[in-house]
């Protein structure tokens, strides 16, 4: 699938933003006043910045409001609802903390749940697609949730938590890759099932001389060599290096510890960006078979 930067930025940033909102909502003693304001401002900047970049991905923005109508069937519609509800509930919760110095805990719990639900609904947009076997697996929502929680934990200052969550997210990423490399064959779509022609089918001529929406959007191919390199870089940066930085038992001063946590966060977000890029770039849509692509992935 075409790795559109706007969608990758969206899911990386808003994941971390909603993860932070989750921890702020559950915190038994959340930050108040100006400190609270700063935390919530960061969370909203990340979450809304992400949503905004996804909005710019739409080709007919004036109808975006209609996406609230189909929550009964559409994960994208449910995501739109979850995001708005989470932001509104957490907004009220934050206003209480920042301006009135009151902590209304149940509201925070509801907001925390809605924040997680937003990340989950985002992931289900991909996981539901049978036509993209690599996404169509349980590890997809698990991976999105783990990264959101890991980033959110660190942003909210829970270093130890974030360390273990980084490692968990890394493990789930490995699981996603392992399973993802097999999914195309498991789903069983091949150029033979696509054309229902007998043995030995190869593309003789494409339908057109130029490219088209389908080939641009869905028949993205990445060299296997680069994919392996990027996987190593992504896993190191998204999981291992930040985990070591926050879990290492150095006895540092307050400032150095914060600087280290900040460094861990930047490396982590960079790593998530790389793994998210791979999440799209490596995903094979079955329509590629009609264009002679992904033959190496199909079942024998």
């Amino acid at each position: 699938m075409h790795p559109a930067p706007s969608v990758i930025i969206f899911s990386t940033l808003s994941g971390a933003g909603f993860g932070l909102l989750f921890f702020l909502g559950l915190d038994p003693d959340p930050p108040r006043g100006w400190v609270g304001f700063t935390f919530f401002a960061i969370a909203y900047a990340l979450a809304c910045g992400g949503l905004f970049s996804a909005f710019f991905h739409l080709k007919n923005k004036k109808n975006a409001w209609k996406s609230y109508s189909q929550w009964r069937t559409s994960w994208l519609s449910r995501e739109a609802w979850a995001a708005v509800l989470a932001l509104v509930v957490m907004g009220v919760f934050a206003a209480g903390l920042v301006f009135r110095d009151t902590h209304f805990a149940p509201l925070g719990w509801v907001g925390a749940l809605l924040s997680l639900a937003t990340v989950f609904t985002t992931s289900m947009i991909y996981a539901q697609l049978r036509a993209v076997p690599r996404w169509n697996q349980a590890a997809t929502p698990a991976m999105f949730l783990a990264y959101a929680l890991a980033g959110g934990a660190l942003l909210s200052g829970r270093e130890t938590w974030s360390g273990w969550l980084f490692l968990l997210a890394g493990a789930i990423t490995l699981w996603h890759w392992w399973k993802g490399d097999r999914r195309f064959a498991e789903v069983g779509t091949t150029i033979r099932s696509a054309t229902r022609l007998n043995s030995g089918v190869t593309l003789f001529e494409a339908p057109h001389t130029g490219d088209n929406y389908l080939t641009r959007e869905m028949v993205f191919r990445i060299a296997r060599k680069h994919a392996v390199k990027l996987r190593v870089i992504g896993l190191l940066a998204a999981s291992l290096v930040p985990a070591i930085l926050v879990l290492a038992p150095f006895d540092l001063g307050f400032a150095a510890k914060h600087a280290l946590a900040g460094l861990a966060l930047l490396i982590h977000l960079g790593g998530v960006f790389v793994t998210r890029w791979l999440f799209f770039a490596e995903a094979e849509h079955v329509v590629g078979l009609y264009y002679g692509a992904h033959l190496d992935r199909q079942a024998a």
């Binding site: 699938m1 991905h57 739409l58 080709k59 007919n60 923005k61 004036k62 109808n63 975006a64 209609k66 996406s67 994208l76 947009i125 539901q128 697609l129 049978r130 036509a131 993209v132 779509t189 088209n212 929406y213 389908l214 959007e217 869905m218 849509h285 079955v286 329509v287 009609y290």
Partner: peptide, 27 residues
């Protein structure tokens, strides 16, 4: 076409490549 926002998700969901967003109209 009056309700489509051009998100392209339906084209992703179709295994056959039977849907295309028109580049000029955005739907």
């Amino acid at each position: 076409e009056d309700a489509c926002m051009g998100c392209g998700l339906c084209a992703w969901a179709c295994p056959y490549g039977a849907r295309e967003v028109d580049e000029a109209a955005g739907i």
